[in-house]
Simulated scan of single mutants.
Amino acid sequence: MKLAIIGLGNMGQAILSGILKNNILEAEQIIAADKKFANADFEIEEKFKEINITDDNKEAVQKADYIILAVKPQIIELVLEDIQNSAASKVIISIAAGVNTRTLSQYFTANTKIIRVMPNTPALVAEGMSALYYSNLVEADERAFVEKIFNSLGETAEVKESDMDAVTGLSGSGPAFVYIFIEALADAGVLKGLARDTALKLAAQTVKGGAEMVLSSDIHPAALKDMVCSPAGTTIAGVAELENKAFRSAVINAVQKAAERSEELGR
C-alpha cells in the first residue's frame, strides 16, 4: 500500500507526522508532492528525510493507492486538473474546506472513491478533531485505514456531507476563536498586574482544563459553569458582563459566518 500527500504545508506535515509516529505506514510507502520541492535551497525536515518527495503531482499520484489532497480550496481545482488522468482508480481524500464531492467527482470517473475530511490545527500536537465523510463506494477496509490516519492526529467523528460546512465553521475555524479567547484572558491578567508568561500559562491551562472537564464528564457545560458561579461571587459578576456584551451571540455568529464562507467556497 502506498500513500501520496499532495501539499506539505502545516496540515500535510501534521498528517505525515501522525502516520510516521504511529507506524501506520513505513516512510518508503509515502510520497509527498509540493511545488516548493523544486526550490534548490529547500530542505525537508530531518524527521521526514526518508519519505519520497517530488514537485510533480502526477508522479506522486501514479505511484500511490491513496491520495490525500492537503491543499487550500482556492487551488484545489488546479491540482485536480493536474492529476485527474492518473488518479481516477485511487482513493481520493480531500481536506479542502467547502469543496464537496460533487465538485471533486467532476474530475474523475463515477467509480472513484472519495472521502472528505475536515481536520483542525491542533492536529499539529495530536489533539485535533477531524470530521470524516465517505462516499458510498468507499469500502470498510479503506474507511478503517483512513480513520487510523486521522485518529493518529486526535479524535474523529463521521458526519453527513451536508454537515461539513457547519463542521468547518465550528471545529475547523474554532481553534482561531479559542486562541483569541486565550489571548484576551491573558491580556486581562496582564492588565491586573500579572506577568505576561504567567498570565498566558494560566489562561491556556484554564481553557485546556475546562475542555477536559466537558469531554471527561457527562455534565452539560451550563451546569459546569453554574458550579463555578457562587451567589454574588466573582465569577457570576464576570458572567453577567459577558452576557451584557453578547459574548455567546458573538461566538455563534462567528461560527455561522465561517460556515457560510465554507458554503461559498463550495459553489
Rank of each mutant, 00 (worst) to 15 (best):
R261W: 03
I51N: 06
I24A: 00
N120M: 13
A157H: 11
I93Y: 08
K90R: 15
E26M: 07
A70E: 01
E147T: 14
E77W: 02
N39A: 15
I53P: 03
A97R: 01
F145Y: 14
N244A: 12
E28N: 15
I95L: 12
S152F: 03
E45C: 05
P221G: 13
Q106D: 14
E241A: 04
A144V: 13
T121A: 12
L242Y: 02
Q62S: 14
G174C: 04
K90Y: 02
A176K: 13
L242T: 08
Q106W: 00
T103I: 15
E127F: 13
I5V: 15
L124T: 00
R196P: 03
A33L: 02
K245R: 13
H220W: 06
K113L: 10
S86C: 11
V125E: 12
T156W: 02
E155H: 10
D218F: 07
L3V: 03
E139F: 07
M213N: 04
Q256V: 06
G169H: 11
E155M: 13
E77T: 00
G128I: 09
A32Y: 01
V178Y: 01
S89W: 04
G154A: 08
N111V: 07
P122W: 06
A240G: 02
E260Y: 05
I252H: 13
I149D: 05
I53K: 09
S105V: 06
I252Q: 11
Q74M: 01
I180R: 14
R102M: 08
I149M: 04
L8N: 11
L137T: 06
P231I: 02
M164W: 10
A27R: 10
N244S: 14
L265M: 07
E139P: 15
E183K: 08
N10H: 11
A126R: 14
I31H: 03
E161D: 08
E43N: 14
T234K: 09
A176P: 04
K201N: 12
I252V: 07
A176M: 09
A33E: 06
Q62E: 15
K192P: 00
N100D: 10
V125W: 06
T54D: 12
N85V: 00
T198E: 04
C229A: 15
L194E: 00
S94G: 11
K113W: 02
A222C: 08
V255T: 07
R267N: 13
K36E: 04
M118V: 08
S135Y: 12
G189N: 01
K72T: 00
G209C: 07
G233V: 04
A250H: 09
A184M: 04
N22L: 00
E158A: 01
A131C: 12
K36Q: 02
M129P: 14
F108S: 00
S249K: 12
L104H: 01
D34E: 02
G98F: 07
E212S: 09
N85S: 11
E155I: 10
M11Y: 05
F181Y: 04
Q106P: 02
D197Q: 10
K90S: 05
A222F: 12
E147P: 10
F145D: 07
E142M: 10
A258G: 13
G210Y: 05
